[in-house]
Amino acid sequence: MTISAAPDVVLDHLSKADGSASYSYAGYAVTATVNGPIEAQRRDEQPFEAIVDVIVRPAAGVGGTRERHLESILCSTLRHLILLKNFPRQLFQIALQITSVPENDYVNSKLMQASSSQNLSVLPTLFQTAILALVSAAVPMKTTASATTIAIPKDYGSPLLNPTPRQVQTSSSIHVFAFTRQGDLLLSQSDGSFSQDEWDVAHDIAKDVCMEKKREEVDVMLDDDESQTQNMADLIRAEAQMKTDSDLHWK
């Protein structure tokens, strides 16, 4: 049960920020802006490296404790990717505004907020948008990375990629993974009740989705034309390539 619609990406659509991106996939939509490197506040600045400030705004209302939690996860992950040492005493500010979340008719929105697994399922979209916005702002990074969600159903069925809120609610565990394009595990957040084997299975599926395919593999897959799942690493590369092509069109 994968979502057939391709992810929707818009790069650099906000003129006042250094970089911006909108990304929507599997019912979640997020807009991100990146400003940086900019001057850090004197009391925050670090003499040897840049600091990263992530702000998450929910679709409705003001941010609460769960946004702080998402911010802290994203901040520690992005810090690993950005070349902070090159920008001492500077600041990178990443603002993420959630613009839509998929509806779940079965429960009210309050319950959606309370449940931690629902909190986690927005994380890949936030992460993906942040990476796209960083690319759009031309922030020097070690590598790019991509993230995905996997739910393991209660009835020991096959793991679901990009589950809907209803599927998340009826699953026994939910896993969010982020991998660098080289295939290193960067982020893993799991919730629910699961065994090591289930986690291993989810890990392998997610790695397959997030890691960059080798050239020959891509060709084979295109020939077969049955690649149902979108490869996230390829998506970032394709979008960046399209953006550069259009920017250099005048030459």
Partner: peptide, 19 residues
């Protein structure tokens, strides 16, 4: 053994085997 929560962030050193 049931795992109820797993949270890893901030780097690439911990891979599947180490976890």
């Amino acid at each position: 053994t049931k795992i109820l929560n797993l949270s890893k962030a901030g780097g690439c050193e911990l891979d599947k085997a180490l976890i």
